[in-house]
Design a protein around this nucleic acid. Structure first.
Lengths: 335, 335
DNA sequence: TTGTATGCGTTATCAA
DNA sequence: TTGATAACGCATACAA
């Protein structure tokens, strides 16, 4: 009984006593319809519960209005915030988001992109992982636009949005130095993504330039537990660090919790800590973490802005570099 | 140049030297194709980079494979976790998630459901808000299936997934009582959603049955800051509560932080606290919050399980009630 | 098993 | 401004 029986433009046309082209025109912006027919159509549509079939429209226009969001770890604070900003912006510009969850397994992102092709998405925005070149080429060949966020890879034809990770990281090194810290450490996961590695590079280089050594540790996935584990690793050493830069806030939260509750270290008096992302928890009074804010709304704006832009004029610009603001709180001495 | 030019089944057929129905059959499960033609088709498809157009297929089959996820506050820990579980389950069963972000504005959910109709989604899963009856009726009439999570409304024809909020809340009241607490409080937002109100009701009733009064406060949205604000409200009173049940973990985190850092209250010695949702932060050692876990994976399993079920047999079952497990940590004395 | 023909709900083109 | 007609890419009933 309640099998899918959507009402079609044909039926609306019949009820309104017009041709189905008239119905179509009524629902396409900027088409010429007389006010009288428009009203007749609208009334009939309303009565019948008619809604344009975007699947069929996409078939005709060669433009589905669908944008694929490809992401892993979407339950994570930073990722979910970015997702929120993106879907919001997409909706604002009349597009709709398709969400594809990837895991760390090989080819997971490639599979996701194939789904994007299946549904003839106008574009794909990749927040995690890096697809194989063959598949991105396929996307581009098919006219699907590609946005890479914090992927820092030189995929030809794709639009890349990155942060000034290295510069930001360098800035923290000097802040630690100014606070009188001399035994620095960098806490990173084993993910090895471009942006995480850039932060590591920037921090280590800047510290070295200041004549300071950095103990670098890598452990597990990019999460709270890994941060705890690395605190254990670093704080049981004879030469404890007096300043730690964590590659993300989640790592930093774990590190701080272990430092305080397991090693009774006071922050920032005995230990300075900094993070990256400015997730909500960083501002909670249990952490008051000094960190760098990812401009998620600006990232989203840039991404869908590029999608809206004309292919021809946008051919020029292929990447943008956004600034991560330092959010000074209370996990580093001085200021 | 790189306008959208996807390769069609027609072209594959040509290259493979077969009819285009042969191509179609090759890509539809359970169609009869000889191994020889199948291989010819596959090779041609591979060479040309052919991918079935799900838009067109959806048009034919009257089944798009699209499921709409309608949600607000998706940056929030509990919501993003639920979203993760749902998209994962959907992918596992060969469907794809469309994400629609709603805000608190009136008709926001209705608009989202209209989008779902536009794209001929097979189903919509509503995590936030409650749409107008007229629009849900429209969805159902069109054969679109509807799942309501924690909405506790008796929409005819929709599948409802709820928790035993009241029973859980009651359980906390007795735990407080057993811990020797006598001045109870309930901390809630002003959202007034069914599940939040059920927790309030269950807690107050159970407390009353134990001969205890409950100070109930409502403040702002369901977030960290509101929790802080209500701590200020309750802890400046002359008759401070010695036990607080917060309607969600986010509220609880805010409450605990303010209690500790602003009022120097020790938890659980001077004040017992409980929450609801078991977000990741609840397990962090800054909180060690005793709370109820939302079985997000089970919720997701139930939701897409119902979507996969046969219309006829599933007609019977219209709702399911899941149990929220108590996760005992360290914010309530004793045990 | 294979190919032919038809229809799904649109929009664009064109003639009126 | 309007209506008829031709695509769009696909799946299927039917005949071979």
């Amino acid at each position: 009984m309640s099998q899918k029986v959507f009402v079609s433009a044909q039926e609306v046309a019949q009820k309104a006593g017009v041709s189905r082209s008239a119905v179509s025109r009524t629902f396409t912006a900027g088409a010429s319809v007389s006010p009288k027919t428009r009203q007749k159509v609208m009334e009939a549509a309303e009565a019948l519960g008619y809604h344009v079939n975007h699947l069929a429209r996409g078939l005709m226009l060669n433009e589905s209005g669908i944008v694929c969001l490809i992401v892993s770890d979407m339950g994570t604070p930073y990722r979910s915030e970015l997702l929120r900003a993106l879907t919001q912006q997409l909706q604002n510009s009349g597009k709709i988001a398709m969400l594809i969850n990837t895991d760390r397994s090989d080819g997971s992102v490639d599979l996701a992109l194939k789904q994007a092709i299946h549904y003839r998405a106008d574009a794909s925005i990749i927040l995690s992982g890096l697809p194989d070149k063959s598949i991105t080429d396929l996307c581009l060949k098919n006219g699907q636009r590609l946005v890479l966020i914090n992927r820092d890879d030189d995929r030809k034809g794709a639009f890349r949005i990155n942060l000034d990770d290295e510069e930001a990281a360098a800035c923290i090194a000097t802040a630690f130095h100014r606070a009188g810290c001399r035994k620095l450490a960098f806490v990173n996961s084993q993910a090895g993504t471009p942006s995480l590695m850039a932060r590591e590079r920037g921090f280590v280089n800047a510290a070295n330039a200041l004549g300071l050594d950095v103990a670098v540790v890598h452990n597990g996935p990019t999460g709270y537990q890994s941060g705890r584990a690395m605190a254990q690793q670093l704080l049981t050493r004879p030469d404890r660090p007096d300043a730690v830069f964590c590659a993300t806030d989640l790592l930093a939260c774990g590190f701080m919790d272990a430092a305080r509750h397991q090693f009774s270290v006071t922050i920032p008096d005995e230990l300075c800590v900094a993070g990256f992302d400015d997730i909500e928890q960083a501002s909670w009074s249990s952490y008051e973490l000094t960190t760098f804010s990812q401009p998620v709304d600006e990232i989203a704006r840039q991404a869908v802005g590029w999608l809206e832009a004309d292919m021809l004029s946008s051919n020029q610009i292929t990447s943008v570099r956004l600034h991560a603001d330092l959010v000074w709180r209370n996990s580093i001495r001085g200021k």
